[in-house]
């Protein structure tokens, strides 16, 4: 199936309840009101995936500023999900691709996330070029199993802008 009918859109204070509904349908963890309010502020980035004008998937990230271990900012995926009937259509992939582009254009070095041990998402993230970094025990408080993997993907700062300018010349 093609993904031609999928478009990405922004999160606003008008449609935020769709994200809540989507996450509560897909994810095992429930997030509180404060979590969602934060998403609308600077330092966070959310994209909704619309299939024929209906929200069917979303990704929400936190932007981590440069720190001791890392010289540039990085993107931490807090939630990512697609409604069950709409999986395997490349919608999740499209969301990840958007993050890649976002990182490249903002010169971010890495995307990382945590995923529950035993989740089928692990394989999926691997397909999107994420690598397992480490096992963290007792990461989750309210769900079983409580362990998770930390996964990440390094963004190679391609010289897209430069190549563009050269070709245009």
């Amino acid at each position: 199936m093609a993904v031609k009918n999928v478009e990405l859109g922004d999160l606003t204070n008008k449609n935020i309840n769709q994200l809540k509904l989507l996450n509560s349908t897909i994810l095992p963890i429930s997030y509180d009101e404060k979590f969602y309010l934060n998403l609308l502020t600077n330092g966070f980035m959310t994209k909704l995936a619309f299939f024929n004008d209906v929200v069917v998937g979303a990704v929400s990230c936190r932007i981590d500023p440069p720190s001791d271990g890392c010289e540039t900012s990085s993107l931490y995926i807090m939630t990512l999900g697609v409604l069950a009937p709409y999986r395997n259509l490349g919608i999740g992939k499209k969301l990840i691709e958007h993050l890649d582009t976002y990182c490249k254009s903002n010169k971010f070095s890495k995307i990382f996330l945590h995923v529950q041990v035993g989740s089928e998402a692990i394989e999926w993230y691997k397909k999107q070029n994420f690598q397992t970094e480490s096992l963290i025990t007792n990461y989750y408080r309210h769900i079983e199993p409580a362990d998770c993997y930390s996964m990440s993907k390094t963004i190679t700062p391609t010289t897209t802008t430069e190549t563009n300018t050269t070709t245009s010349k």
Binding site: L21, V54, V56, L83
Partner: peptide, 11 residues
């Protein structure tokens, strides 16, 4: 209700 279960975000 089946529809809502299928795509709860469809208004």
């Amino acid at each position: 209700d089946q529809g809502i279960k299928h795509t709860p975000t469809c208004l």
